[in-house]
Simulated assay, not measured.
Amino acid sequence: MTEFEFLEPDLLDEDLRMVRDQVRRFSRERIVPFADEWEATGEIPRSVFLELGQMGFLGMRHPVEYGGGGMGALASVVLGEELSRSGYGGVASALTVHSDMSISHIAHRGSPAQKQRYLPDACAGRKVGAICVTEPGAGSDVAGMRTRAVRTAEGWVLNGSKTFITNGVHGDIYIVAARTDPEAKGSRGISMFIVDKDNPGLKVTRKFDKHGWRSSDTAELFFDDLALPPDALLGEEGKGFYYIMSTFQNERLVVGALVSGTCARAIELTVDYVRQRQAFGKPLWDQQVVRNKLAWVASKAAAVRALTYQCALMIDQGKDTVREVSMLKAFGAETLQEVVHTCLQLHGGSGYIIGTPVERMARDARILTIGGGATEVMLEEVAKRM
């Protein structure tokens, strides 16, 4: 079996190389043999979260005193790359939404009491997180949010709905964005709240049957007079839009890592296939056009990976990365489409059969030009900073 490896960046220290090797082994032994069943059932067993949590990989960037690893952005990149090399985008997305896109709000902005209550269980995989921002009428337009939280004598009352929520069915800790100032316009007046699954005002109204990422559960949620205590407010009131935008930078970094790992796996599979597949009396690999196509997509994939690591380094240095991660999200997600569809094309008819890895990766890849900020929105973010 070919292992397609990019040039290993000098940025990885011994600890991160160990993380990479252990997650790769976990992916090979504990994900790949079972994930077809998860694709069929539309959910990932809780045992997967527990095992990764026990290994210390679900809280690598969270504070050590609450069960985390206290590591930097490169840890998120290594985790995302190696999980996505499994070839199962749904598994990689569910796990990284938990570790890097939802619970991270508590790690960064939670009070000591909130961190103590939620982070140990989240880092250990005992409880799973979901981030609830997208609404039926407001996807990339976060400022168009309509979900409301009204202050009461007892705390807050939440009403509204969220859609396309990863881990929405089987999650335990929901980080919910809601408008708290009805008079504020646009991005102002939005706050963040922590909602527990057992709150009677929370209803899962629909579990989506998706084109790809079929092993991750994706739901529509409804909040019906959902009562929250005062300490459910996460961070400062009215700062929610800023918090969302800040976390989006990390989300888009992780997307770059998911792209990098998926590209590597698709190229590995395709190089093996064209070396074995005979056509016109010789292996497809002997056709110059085939080799050139693979060399071309491998070059683009290497460029995405280099930009991913550069963005991680900038984040760890405390630099403003909005422009760079927007470039990464747009260029990476669009490059992935080219890579997986080139690989599917080179597999011929077998690449179109459900159940083959390249067919699944082509379906899984499609969401990445949409979720986390559509390509068109990302390009506007870049253009604003030119």
Rank of each mutant, 00 (worst) to 15 (best):
E82H: 10
E81Q: 15
Q54E: 13
L52Q: 15
I106Y: 00
G90M: 08
L74M: 11
V97H: 12
T96H: 06
S76H: 11
D100C: 14
S104D: 06
I106F: 00
Q54Y: 11
E51K: 15
S102W: 00
I106S: 04
R61E: 05
V91K: 11
I44R: 06
D100N: 15
G69P: 01
S99I: 11
R109G: 04
G72K: 06
V97A: 05
G67Y: 01
L50R: 15
G87P: 06
G56L: 02
G53W: 04
L83C: 12
S102D: 02
G68A: 07
V97Y: 05
P45Q: 06
I44Q: 12
L95T: 14
G53Q: 09
S99T: 13
A107F: 02
E65M: 07
V48D: 08
G80V: 08
G90F: 02
L79C: 14
G59L: 04
S104A: 07
G90N: 13
G69R: 00
G80I: 10
A73Y: 06
S76M: 10
G87I: 10
E51V: 13
V97C: 03
Q54S: 14
L74T: 15
P63I: 02
I103F: 00
H108C: 06
G80A: 12
G87W: 03
F49V: 13
G53C: 05
H105F: 13
R46D: 05
S102L: 00
R61P: 03
S86Q: 10
I44Y: 02
Y88Q: 02
P45M: 02
E65A: 06
G89N: 12
E43Q: 13
Y88A: 01
H98C: 11
G70E: 00
M71K: 14
H98E: 07
H98D: 09
M60V: 05
L52W: 08
M60A: 05
V77W: 09
F57D: 12
H98L: 07
F57W: 12
L95A: 13
A73G: 08
E43F: 04
E43M: 10
M55R: 15
G89Q: 08
F49A: 12
E43C: 09
S86R: 12
P63M: 00
M55K: 15
S102Y: 02
E82W: 04
G87F: 02
E82K: 10
G80F: 09
S47F: 02
E43I: 09
V48H: 03
L50I: 13
Y66S: 08
E43R: 14
M71G: 03
S84N: 14
I106L: 01
V97T: 09
G72R: 04
S104W: 00
M101P: 01
G56V: 10
V64D: 00
A94D: 07
L52D: 09
M71Q: 12
G72I: 00
E43D: 13
H62D: 01
A73F: 02
H105K: 04
G68P: 03
H98R: 13
G53I: 08
S99V: 08
L50S: 11
